[in-house]
Every structure is written in C-alpha cells, then in structure tokens.
C-alpha cells in the first residue's frame, strides 16, 4: 500500500505540490489525470526519489516504510518502479546488459542470489515476446535510436522483468500507435495482481478502456482535487478540466 499524506514539494523555489494526499491500496489501479503542469510527473519523481525536489512537508510510505529517507536505488529494490514519460538513452550499454545489471543490483540489495545469465535471458526473451519487441533490439544500446513507441514498450519490459510492487506509468500511452497501445495494456494487465498496485498517469480516457482503473483522481495545482471511480474519466473526457482549475486556484 502506498500512502501519501499532505505532500508539499518545491523545486528551485517554485512550489509544485501543495498538500497532496493519496492512498493506493494493494492490488489497486489508480489513474491520475490533470492539466499540463499540474505536477503529475513531479509526483512520480518524488515517489521514485529524484534529487532536486525539496520535500517541505508530508510523507510517502510504501507498506509503512518511509520512502523519502531512501536513495532511488533503495526505493527500486523496495519495489518502486517508474516508467518514464521520457525514457533516457544509455549509449554503449546493450539493453540485455543493462537489464542484467539492474535486476542483479536489486536482488543483491534484497539479499537474494544473482540470477544466472541463461535464466535472465530466458525471462527477458519471454517478456520481449509478449510485448512484441524484436529480440535483436535487446542487443542494441538501451533506448539509443529507439522510436518513441519502442522506448515506451521497453519501459514495460523492464517493469515486467523487475516485478515491482508499486508501478508508476507516466504517460506511457503517449506516442503509442493503436496496436502498441493494446500490446502495452495487455502487458500491464498481465502484471496486475493482489499484491501489486499501479499509478497510471494519462491524459486520455482511451488508455483506461484497456487498463481499467479502480479509482480515478484529478490533480490540479499540485493536489488531488477530486477522486472517483472509472466513470470520472469519462466525465473529464466530456467536460475538460475547467471546473477543477477554478476550484483549485
């Protein structure tokens, strides 16, 4: 369970999150929608532990553990995964090598044995197949020269491999063609389970037809201004954010 209470965050003297409170239960898929610049990516970075963000007040707990005191890699090992809105390129590092390094670092941090290379390759290849990622892409440097949609798919492959407890998808649907949207959604749905929860950030109701959320939250000016069921997304699609903008201001 992820609990965020009264979170206030600023960057370079600019206040971005203003007392955000949100709970995502085990097994829950929570969607976050909200206007550009409302602080959605900021929230995902703060949960994942990006530097530069100054937490002024509030707490973020994963199963009762205070995430704010942990380094990003410790949070990853504890089960936090962020599928980036803009995945980064790592020149010269083959995707397979990167995945191996990542998984084994996490396992080591949790006191588990390293995975053997054949076992790792088997898992990666399996996940790649399900996401229809060509096998030879695994030999290429991570994200270098990948198309926007390929990068997004690769994020989901990493998520599948790392088996995190709490997954944040930051606009994973943007840049995906219709077929890819379906493939990625299937990939995400396959990972849904009692113990795993998701925070799905999106601008489009369409994604939520594939990944059906349990809850929908509207974010404006750095806080959650309305929460509801999946019908809330349809309402937003029809009416836009006009109401919430004024409400939050």
């Amino acid at each position: 369970m992820l609990e965020i209470r009264n979170l206030h965050v600023q960057i370079e003297d600019k206040k971005i999150l203003n007392g955000l409170t949100l709970t995502v239960n085990d097994g829950e898929v929570a969607a976050i929608m909200g206007p550009n610049g409302s602080g959605k990516s900021t929230l995902s970075y703060v949960i994942a532990g990006k530097e530069d963000y100054e937490v002024l007040d509030g707490e973020v707990l994963l199963d009762g553990r205070n995430l704010l005191e942990m380094d990003p890699n410790e949070r990853a090992a504890a089960g936090v995964f962020l599928a980036f809105q803009y995945p980064l390129e790592i020149p010269g590092v083959a995707t397979m090598s990167f995945l191996k390094a990542a998984l084994n670092s996490q396992r080591k941090a949790r006191g588990e044995d390293e995975l053997s290379t054949p076992e790792l390759m088997k898992r990666v290849r399996g996940a790649a197949e399900r996401l229809q990622i060509p096998q030879d892409m695994l030999k290429r440097a991570l994200n270098v020269g990948f198309s926007g949609g390929e990068k997004k798919r690769m994020e989901i492959l990493q998520m599948a491999l790392l088996e995190p407890k709490f997954c944040i998808l930051d606009e994973t649907d943007s840049g995906l063609d219709i077929d890819a949207l379906k493939i990625v959604s299937d990939g995400v749905n396959a990972l849904r389970g009692d113990k795993r929860s998701f925070l799905v950030i999106t601008h489009y109701q369409r994604l939520l037809n594939y990944i059906v959320p349990d809850t929908v939250h509207v974010m404006a000016n750095g806080r959650v201004v309305k929460s509801g069921g999946k019908e809330l997304a349809l309402e937003l699609e029809a009416n836009g954010y006009a109401d919430y903008r004024t409400q939050a201001a």
Binding site: A48, P72, F84, I90, A101, Q106, A109
Partner: peptide, 19 residues
C-alpha cells in the same frame, strides 16, 4: 541518466561505472 539507472536499482557508483 544517473537517476534513470538508479531508479532501476543501480547504486550511484554502479550507474557511473555502467555509463
């Protein structure tokens, strides 16, 4: 880049070495 690698579980040192 460092943050990205660390988000995947690598320590700052491991991330630097990898890059």
């Amino acid at each position: 880049q460092l943050f990205y690698c660390m988000q995947r579980g690598l320590s700052a040192e491991e991330a630097t070495a990898l890059i």
